[in-house]
Simulated assay, not measured.
Amino acid sequence: MRILHTSDWHIGRSFHGHSTLHALSGVLDELVRQVRDHAVDVVVVAGDVFDSAAPSAACYPVLTGALRAMADAGAQVIVTSGNHDNAARLGFQADLLREGVHVVTDPLTVGTPITITDAHGPVHFYPLPYLEPALVRHLWEDVPLRTQHQVIEHAMGLVRADLAERGGRSVAVSHCFAAGVEATPGVEREIRQGTLDVVPLSAFDGPDYVALGHIHGRQRLSDRVRYAGAPLHYSFGEADKPRGSWLVDLDAEGLAAVEWLDLPIPRALTTVRGTLDELLADARFESAEGEWVCAQYTDPTPQPDPMRRLLVRFPHCATVMHQPEGARAGDGLSYARRVRAARSDAELIDSFLVHVRDGEGATDREAEIIRDVIGERVVAEAKA
């Protein structure tokens, strides 16, 4: 069986104020071509299909068009929700799509596989929709579920129990922050509150292959546990990371081969650095004129209208930063810097505690209380 592992489409995400829908549609067309050219049997989309819990109307045709095209190309498609997705909205799509397209968002389906058969027999796919501890702990009241680690451990326990009865080959799909990955700061919205929410690789023991989502760059954690990353660059911090998907082959015994398939990059991202006059005239920056540009100008003092002036040469200049040469780097310890760097409510609270306690953040017990309070708020908002 041949499987294409992709994730983190983030349909509807903007890039420094610019829509990415057109560019993403083109890349997904190429993904469909890969499905056809490589005779893919199953496409796995490991979460964060949409970028927002309330995607605009223009986002839905991008998703349905891509899923239907993949099905038309001969593949079955398995889609799970990620932390950016609204499970109810994404799940609503399931009954509207054709046979062979499976959209899995219900936590109660964990441990129940989607079984697809090839010449060697059945392959059991176990999709794990994104499992927010505060929203799912009532489903398994006899199990302590405070962190992503605990939730994934429990979910994979259900998977292994079911697999022990069925036997055969298997693939698990999850959207989480696994131990050993290298994240891009400011890109992936955290699924963790402190280090407790990092999921160890041992949690994924059992299946022949584990298709992960959430990290935007491809990652190989082991031969059988991988992240595919996002199909587009959504940050200049990702500029050096390839875009693509994993082509996974299962034979009669299990995992046989994994190959990386590159996807096209609609417009390259580059960072240019120099004085404003150099950026506007120096020939060494000619190659960047058609690319997305992050411009860092090094003049001692701020210059008037730098963006307007740079756009004349770089029509796709997305952001401008004033970084004077020789300026003393900040130590990052001011309260304002800590607040801006916080990527979750828990980190924001911890930043306040560090500020008022002269560098000492929340204790383990305090962090647990903070997680519970935030979890209760999440539940209240979900019911509102």
Rank of each mutant, 00 (worst) to 15 (best):
G213T: 00
Q148T: 03
F177V: 04
E165A: 09
E188K: 11
A179G: 14
I152R: 00
D208Q: 08
I152T: 09
L158M: 12
V173Q: 02
D162Y: 01
G206Y: 07
E165F: 03
Q148E: 08
L158R: 14
M156Y: 07
H175G: 02
L158N: 10
A161Y: 12
D142N: 13
E182T: 15
Q150L: 07
L212S: 00
S222E: 06
C176S: 06
R166M: 00
G206T: 02
D208A: 09
D162R: 13
A179R: 10
V143R: 07
H149F: 09
R218E: 14
V187P: 15
E153W: 06
E188H: 13
D223T: 05
L212F: 10
V159W: 09
G206I: 05
P185W: 15
Q148M: 09
E165M: 05
A178G: 06
P207Y: 03
A155F: 01
G167D: 04
M156K: 09
V151N: 05
G180P: 14
S174V: 01
A155Q: 06
E190C: 13
G180A: 15
H216V: 07
Q148A: 12
R220N: 07
P185G: 11
A161F: 07
F177S: 02
A178K: 03
P185V: 12
A179C: 14
G180L: 14
H216A: 08
P207G: 00
G167I: 00
V173E: 03
R218L: 10
S174C: 08
A178Y: 11
H216L: 09
G217C: 14
A179Q: 15
Q193A: 15
E153V: 11
Y209K: 05
I152V: 15
S202F: 07
F204D: 11
E153F: 10
F177G: 01
R146W: 09
G217I: 10
V143N: 04
G213K: 00
A211D: 02
T195W: 04
G180W: 15
G186Q: 14
L163N: 01
A183H: 11
V181Y: 08
Q150K: 05
A179T: 13
V199R: 04
V143D: 11
F204L: 09
T147K: 11
L163M: 08
E188C: 10
I191S: 06
R166G: 05
D208F: 08
V159R: 10
F204I: 08
G186V: 11
E188Y: 14
I191Q: 06
E153G: 08
R189P: 15
A183T: 14
E190L: 15
F177W: 13
H149I: 04
R166Q: 03
H216E: 15
A179V: 13
A155S: 13
H154D: 10
V173T: 00
D162L: 02
E153I: 06
S222I: 09
H149E: 08
G167F: 02
D197T: 01
D208W: 08
G168C: 03
A172R: 02
D162M: 01
V210L: 02
R160C: 05
F177Q: 04
D197C: 01
A172W: 05
P200F: 10
T184H: 15
D223M: 04
V159Q: 04
A179Y: 12
P200A: 12
R189Q: 15
P144C: 09
R218T: 10
D223V: 07
